[in-house]
Simulated assay, not measured.
Amino acid sequence: MAQLVEAARKSLEDDKAEDVLVLDVTGRADYADRLIIATGLVDRQIQAMATHVVEALELAGLPLRRDAVQASPDWVLIDALDLVIHLFKPEARALYGLERMWGPDSPSPEAGS
């Protein structure tokens, strides 16, 4: 897992992603152990970031399914099994607030039960 996270993080930094954040959601999310959230300023940058992350993960030994990348106008999601990568435009990142939902200051799972 650490190798995949590092490959994705380095790829994003190489593509000048802003505010790259890695969150450990082990035991809190049933769909992943790590989330990476990053911001790109324009569509072209976000699409390049997504392409390069997929290539970096494949080089690190994780070939992805064809449907692993889902895109909308403001957000690209890459499902790399226990690692999920979210690439946002700034306004979408603020709107969805994944850091608030999954970050270290978010409520624990026990708080909701």
Rank of each mutant, 00 (worst) to 15 (best):
V5K: 01
V5G: 02
E6T: 03
E6P: 00
A8K: 00
A8H: 00
R9C: 11
R9T: 10
K10N: 15
S11W: 08
S11G: 05
S11R: 09
L12C: 04
L12D: 05
L12V: 08
E13L: 15
D15I: 11
D15V: 09
D15P: 02
D15Q: 13
K16C: 06
K16D: 09
A17H: 00
E18W: 04
D19C: 07
V20S: 02
V20L: 06
L21C: 12
L21T: 06
V22Q: 09
L23P: 06
L23N: 07
L23V: 10
L23F: 10
V25Y: 09
V25S: 02
T26N: 11
R28M: 08
D30G: 11
D30Y: 14
A32H: 04
A32M: 06
D33F: 04
D33C: 06
R34T: 09
L35Q: 03
L35F: 11
I37E: 01
I37A: 07
I37V: 11
I37F: 08
I37H: 10
T39W: 01
T39A: 07
L41F: 14
L41Q: 15
L41A: 14
L41I: 13
D43C: 10
D43S: 10
R44F: 09
R44W: 12
I46N: 00
Q47D: 03
Q47C: 01
A48F: 14
A48L: 13
M49Q: 04
M49F: 06
M49T: 01
M49C: 04
A50M: 09
H52T: 08
E55H: 14
E55A: 15
E55T: 12
L57M: 05
L57F: 05
L57P: 00
E58M: 09
E58A: 07
L59S: 14
G61P: 03
L62K: 04
L62S: 10
P63R: 15
P63C: 13
P63F: 15
L64D: 06
L64Q: 06
L64E: 10
R65S: 15
R65M: 12
R65E: 15
R65C: 13
R66V: 13
A68H: 02
A68W: 03
V69Y: 06
Q70N: 01
S72C: 00
S72K: 01
P73D: 13
P73C: 11
P73Q: 11
P73W: 05
D74T: 05
D74F: 07
W75L: 01
W75I: 00
V76Y: 00
V76W: 02
L77H: 00
L77I: 00
L77M: 02
L77D: 02
A80G: 02
A80N: 01
L81D: 12
H86S: 03
H86Q: 08
L87Q: 01
F88W: 03
F88Y: 01
F88K: 04
E91T: 12
E91I: 11
A92Q: 03
A94I: 10
Y96C: 05
Y96N: 02
G97T: 07
L98W: 04
R100K: 12
M101A: 12
M101H: 09
W102D: 06
W102R: 12
W102H: 08
G103P: 10
G103W: 05
G103R: 07
P104I: 08
P104Q: 09
P104T: 10
S106D: 14
P107Q: 11
S108F: 14
S108I: 13
S108A: 14
P109E: 11
E110M: 14
E110N: 15
E110D: 15
S113A: 15
S113R: 15
